[in-house]
């Protein structure tokens, strides 16, 4: 019983007759990117905040920041998704819970918030590492010329820290794109879900997944090149950044 290849399947219409399979995959890719970009915004904002918190002189801010990171890093992403999507509506007061449950595109919003906060913990790690890799004298120099601590962060520390962590940040962005696939478990029809659904309707399993794989590869290449261009544009002449080997994906 050999597998029957049919690469033309991409041009055939899906069972509900409106779109060809290749279009469905592209819609899926669209949802993937929309989820990833929205979540990335949340991740950057919260991650930078928490990362900065963990480098301040205030021990309480540091502890809160550490707790935040530990919370989101030690629970699997899938479990976090379930908590947001299934558990949150149940533990909210009834009115809010009911509203959440019937929200249009609930899986999208849940995915964005869940993914955003999950990734923000990782971004916080990078931001903290970036700031700490700067020589301690930088902070002192900023304060010495009369800047307040927030100003020192804003004008002296963060501009350099972000340049240093561009490579690992690029990595995190790619991770967020890949991690968006986990949202298929809560009903988001992103790229992997679209491929799965295509494979179920058409029985052309390998064509479907090859299509999705190729799209992920293309997205990867675009993001990597984009990041390299960004790195070159913002590079400070004469400065060599650092990036150490870390675990994860």
């Amino acid at each position: 019983m050999r597998y029957h290849w049919n690469w033309g399947i991409f041009f055939e219409l899906s069972p509900d007759g409106t779109y060809a399979y290749w279009q469905l995959l592209l819609f899926g890719a669209g949802w993937t990117l929309a989820t990833a970009l929205s979540a990335w915004l949340i991740a950057l904002v919260f991650g930078s905040l928490v990362g900065v918190m963990r480098t301040t002189p205030s021990p309480w801010l540091v502890r809160i920041g550490n707790a935040y990171v530990e919370l989101f890093r030690n629970i699997p992403l899938l479990v976090q998704m379930f908590l947001w999507y299934f558990v949150l509506p149940e533990v909210m007061p009834e009115a809010i819970g009911d509203w959440l449950k019937q929200l249009n595109n609930a899986s999208f919003y849940n995915a964005v918030i869940c993914l955003g906060l999950y990734t923000s913990a990782r971004v916080a790690e990078q931001v903290k590492a970036g700031i700490l890799s700067l020589r301690g004298g930088q902070r002192m120099a900023g304060l010495a010329i009369g800047l307040t601590l927030p100003q020192t962060y804003r004008y002296v520390l963060l501009p350099m820290a972000f340049r240093i962590i561009l490579p690992p940040l690029a990595s995190e962005f790619l991770n967020i794109i890949k991690n968006s696939s986990v949202a298929l478990t809560i009903g988001l029809i992103e790229l992997t879900a679209a491929a799965r659904s295509m494979s179920e309707f058409s029985f052309q399993v390998f064509e479907a997944f090859t299509g999705a794989t190729l799209i992920y590869i293309v997205i990867n290449i675009v993001v990597v090149n984009g990041m390299q261009m960004l790195e070159r544009r913002v590079a400070v002449p004469g400065f060599i950044g650092t990036a150490k080997p870390v675990a994860g994906h």
Binding site: L174, K178, N179, S180, S181, V182, L184, T192, A195, R196, S199, V205, F206, F209, A212, T213, Y216, I217, N220, H249
Partner: peptide, 17 residues
């Protein structure tokens, strides 16, 4: 190749492959 793919997709790939 593997590092550009989501784990979920790889799971599906091997499940069928």
């Amino acid at each position: 190749l593997i590092r550009s793919m989501p784990l979920v997709l790889v799971i599906f790939w091997f499940f069928f492959l």
